[in-house]
């Protein structure tokens, strides 16, 4: 039996905000794969629970008329993986969330929970950084939106007030139309593991040149991150082996991994460099680019 002291089931997003406002110590539970494990491990701060597991309005995956892709914070990884809209317009997101845990975890864990945890190893985060995803939030003061890069404040910390709910993620058409991408998770096991390094690349190829490239990492620093210096050097360059060397070397100027029991800093730097090369190559190939 889990050890929380109070439990309230929210009927809607507004109801969840109301319940969070009434009890300033309350925390949200959605899929439960993080909160319940933390409770199991005796973590403090989860004594009061507001349950949004069955708030269906948070689970929609849709394509707006203006081309915006909207993914409800309460959508599970399996729902995202299998959504026709995502498979058609953003297969790289399907690919990324397919690397999370195992089937049972993907069937219940939500993308909102993955992001709101604020951890650097979230498998959905690097690709969302590469797609300039926008996080939509609702709170007592109303609705607001923030770019994902501003949403992460530090390890385990996101820009979400206690009484606010992350409702959805929006990806605008200028960030996915014409782009192809790839996500690669490097971990010790092929499943049920946490990324040692996760790397996402999204790019656009035009007449043999890289018209745009976004490179993002998980576990390469305290929060997921983009690689502005590597991206700057690669932009508008001709696609050849030399370009990959430039990218692989310059991502090292952007990242800041640490040593943990999982892997040493030096090992992570090696993987970061290697993934820059492999993931970029694959993303470019998918974008129809030919390597000279």
């Amino acid at each position: 039996m889990y050890s929380f002291e109070s439990y309230e089931k929210a009927a809607s997003t507004i109801d969840a905000i109301r319940l969070l406002t009434i009890n300033p110590d309350a925390k949200l539970i959605a899929g439960g794969t993080e909160v319940l494990i933390s409770l199991h491990n005796g973590k403090k701060g989860l004594e009061h629970i507001v349950d949004i597991h069955d708030v269906t309005e948070l689970q929609n995956i849709s394509l707006s008329d203006n081309g915006n892709l909207n993914i409800g914070a309460g959508a599970t990884f399996t729902q995202i993986m299998n959504a026709k809209i995502i498979k058609k317009h953003l297969p790289v997101l399907s690919e990324a969330v397919g690397t999370v845990g195992g089937p049972q975890v993907r069937n219940v864990a939500t993308i909102g929970g993955n992001i709101c945890n604020g951890v650097t190893c979230a498998d959905s985060a690097p690709i969302l950084f590469a797609l300039n995803a926008v996080i939509n939030i609702e709170g007592p003061a109303g609705k607001k939106s923030t770019p994902i890069s501003d949403f992460y404040l530090g390890p385990g910390k996101v820009a979400l007030e206690q009484s606010e709910v992350m409702t959805s993620i929006t990806i605008s058409p200028d960030n996915y139309q014409g782009y192809s991408g790839h996500y690669r998770k490097y971990a010790m096991r092929n499943a049920m593991d946490i990324a040692t390094i996760g790397c996402a690349v999204s790019c656009k190829v035009n007449e043999g040149k890289l018209e745009d490239i976004r490179i993002a990492y998980g576990v390469a620093g305290p929060v997921p991150m983009r690689c502005p210096s590597a991206e700057g050097k690669a932009m508008n360059q001709t696609i050849d082996e030399g370009l990959f060397r430039i990218i692989a070397n310059s991502v090292l100027d952007d990242v800041n991994p640490r040593t943990s029991w999982r892997a040493s800093k030096d090992f992570r730097l090696q993987i970061i460099k290697e993934l820059a090369l492999r993931v970029t190559k694959k993303a470019i190939e998918r974008a129809g680019g030919v390597i000279k």
């Binding site: 539970i29 349950d51 219940v108």
Partner: peptide, 27 residues
């Protein structure tokens, strides 16, 4: 394991495979 690693508690909820140790009964 009690933490969603081993799958020994797997059941189907609305035909979806879940770990019943990491799933509140009220759900």
């Amino acid at each position: 394991c009690g933490v969603g690693e081993c799958g020994a508690c797997s059941v189907l909820v609305d035909d979806v495979l879940i770990d019943s140790c990491l799933y509140l009964a009220v759900w």
